Amino acid sequence: AEKTGIVNVSSSLNVREGASTSSKVIGSLSGNTKVTIVGEEGAFYKIEYKGSHGYVAKEYIKDIKDE
């Protein structure tokens, strides 16, 4: 049951290796980017990222929809 969301930041949002603010940053997404959410862990969504997965803070994702 995948969902999509939109990155809701003015600059960019860090994509992390794990569901923690201390996890390594593996990339970033600019505002209004559409993401595919494959799961959630605590305050983070697990998303599809560059052929693999990454984690982003839930508070910066809006317009969550079921695909």
Rank of each mutant, 00 (worst) to 15 (best):
V56I: 10
V56E: 00
I26Q: 02
G31D: 14
V56S: 01
T33K: 05
E67Q: 15
T21E: 12
S12L: 11
Y60L: 07
E59V: 13
G51C: 07
S20I: 06
A43S: 12
L13P: 06
E48K: 13
I47T: 01
K24T: 08
K3G: 05
E41K: 07
V35H: 01
E2D: 10
F44P: 00
I6R: 10
G31I: 09
I47V: 06
I64H: 07
K65Q: 13
V7E: 02
T36R: 14
Y60H: 13
S28V: 14
A57M: 15
D63H: 12
G39T: 04
N8T: 13
G42E: 05
L13Q: 03
S11Q: 15
I37L: 04
S30I: 12
V25M: 06
E67W: 03
Y55D: 00
S10R: 09
G54A: 12
I26M: 06
I26N: 02
D66I: 12
E40K: 04
S11P: 14
V38C: 05
Y55R: 00
V35S: 01
I64Y: 09
V15D: 00
L29D: 00
N14W: 11
V56A: 04
A57G: 08
K24E: 09
T33A: 15
V38L: 15
G27P: 00
K3A: 06
G27S: 02
N32F: 09
T21P: 14
A19M: 05
S23Y: 05
E41M: 11
V35C: 04
V25F: 06
I64A: 08
G5K: 04
S11G: 15
S20E: 06
G31M: 14
K3H: 08
G39A: 08
D66F: 07
V35Q: 01
S30K: 15
S10H: 15
Y49Q: 01
K50R: 11
T4K: 08
S52G: 14
S28F: 13
Y55A: 00
F44L: 02
N32D: 11
G54E: 00
S28P: 04
K46V: 09
V9D: 07
D63Q: 13
F44M: 04
A57R: 14
K34T: 13
V9Y: 04
V9W: 04
Y49C: 03
K50D: 10
I37G: 00
I47W: 00
I47K: 00
H53P: 05
N32K: 08
S10L: 10
N8K: 14
Y55P: 00
V25L: 06
S22P: 03
D66T: 15
G5V: 04
E41N: 09
G5A: 05
G31H: 12
V7A: 05
I26D: 00
E59D: 10
S52N: 14
I61E: 01
S11Y: 10
A57I: 12
G18N: 12
T36M: 13
K3R: 12
G42W: 04
T4D: 04
V9A: 12
E41A: 08
E59C: 07
E59L: 14
I47L: 02
S23K: 04
K46P: 00
I37P: 00
G5R: 04
E59Y: 10
D63A: 11
A43E: 13
G31F: 13
Y49M: 03
K46S: 03
N8Q: 10
Y60D: 08
A57P: 15
D63W: 09
G5M: 05
Y49A: 01
G27L: 04
Y49T: 01
E40N: 05
S30P: 15
F44S: 03
G27T: 02
V7M: 03
A1S: 15
E40Y: 05
V35N: 00
E59I: 15
D66Q: 15
S30R: 14
I37C: 02
S12N: 14
D63V: 15
R16C: 05
I26F: 03
I47D: 00
S10K: 11
K46T: 04
E41D: 12
S12G: 11
I64P: 06
I61M: 05
S30C: 07
I61G: 01
E17G: 08
E17N: 10
E48Q: 13
K50W: 07
G42P: 03
K3C: 05
E17Y: 08
K50G: 14
V38A: 05
V9G: 13
A19C: 04
D63S: 09
Y60G: 10
K58V: 05
G51Q: 14
K62H: 13
N14I: 15
N8V: 15
E17W: 08
I61Y: 02
S28M: 14
E41T: 09
Y45E: 00
S12R: 15
D66W: 07
T21G: 15
Y49G: 01
I64E: 08
N8W: 05
V38S: 05
S10W: 06
I61A: 01
A19Y: 04
S11L: 13
G42R: 05
I47F: 01
V35D: 00
K3Y: 05
N32M: 13
S30V: 12
G27I: 03
E48D: 14
N8D: 09
E59K: 10
E41G: 03
V56M: 02
K65E: 13
E67K: 13
T21L: 13
N32H: 15
V56F: 01
T4V: 11
I47N: 00
K24G: 06
H53I: 13
G18L: 11
V9P: 08
S22N: 11
S10G: 10
K58H: 03
S12Y: 12
K34I: 13
V7I: 10
E67P: 10
E2K: 07
A1M: 11
V56W: 00
T36K: 13
A1C: 07
N14P: 15
G18D: 09
E59M: 15
V15E: 00
E48I: 12
S12I: 14
T21M: 13
I47E: 00
Y49E: 01
V25Y: 04
S12D: 12
I64K: 05
K58I: 06
G18F: 14
E41I: 13
G51N: 11
S23V: 03
N14F: 11
T4I: 15
K34H: 09
E48Y: 14
A43K: 12
Y45W: 13
E2W: 06
D63L: 14
A19R: 03
K34M: 09
K62I: 15
A19W: 05
T33Y: 07
G39C: 05
S20W: 08
V25N: 04
E40V: 08
K46I: 14
D66E: 12
R16W: 15
T21R: 15
E59T: 08
G31L: 13
Y45P: 00
D66V: 08
A19K: 03
S52E: 10
N32V: 05
K3E: 04
N32S: 08
N32T: 06
K50A: 12
N8R: 11
I26L: 11
G39N: 05
A43L: 14
S22Q: 11
Y60M: 10
Y49W: 11
S12C: 08
S10C: 09
I61V: 12
E41P: 01
S22D: 14
S10M: 14
D66G: 10
N14D: 13
T33D: 10
K58L: 03
I37Q: 00
I64V: 15
